[in-house]
Design a protein around this nucleic acid. Structure first.
Length: 116
DNA sequence: ATTCTGACAGCAA
DNA sequence: TTTGCTGCCAGAA
């Protein structure tokens, strides 16, 4: 395996968790934003996959603060109950209507600009 | 080993 | 504007 082709999977997953944990309370971001922040802008699906297996991480991962670029709660079904994700977000001041975050643009937090 | 699918995103029609 | 296909990387069958 070439140096530049080394597996970053482990690292990638961990980074996804770290970034996700950095999302401020009441704020949200998108899979693509995280992927892009990690350097793999086109690997947004991997971010979702990482969050899908985030239970392997001992720390609490606020995965409910991560939605797709449209602000749609595409992963709500992975929170046990379909309404759990929406409920969690609602508790943080995120207004959701029809599985879509109304004030998405307003509450959006980009790790790239949010951490600088 | 091959094929399909997935918590996405970008672009073409 | 909406719909559909493609790229992305990993895992499951």
């Amino acid at each position: 395996m070439t140096p530049g082709n080394q597996k970053v999977n482990n690292d990638f997953f961990s980074r996804v968790y770290e970034v996700t944990k950095l999302i401020p309370y009441g704020r949200i971001t998108s899979y693509g934003a995280i992927a892009r922040f990690l350097g793999s802008g086109k690997s947004a699906r991997m971010v979702g996959w990482a969050l899908n297996v985030c239970h392997s991480n001992p720390d609490f991962i606020p995965a409910h603060r991560v939605v797709n670029r449209n602000g749609v709660l595409t992963g709500k079904h992975h929170f046990g109950n379909s309404s759990t994700m929406q409920q969690l977000l609602f508790n943080e001041g995120i207004i959701i209507e029809d599985d879509t975050i109304i004030n998405f643009k307003e509450k959006f937090w980009d790790p790239a600009t949010g951490l600088q």
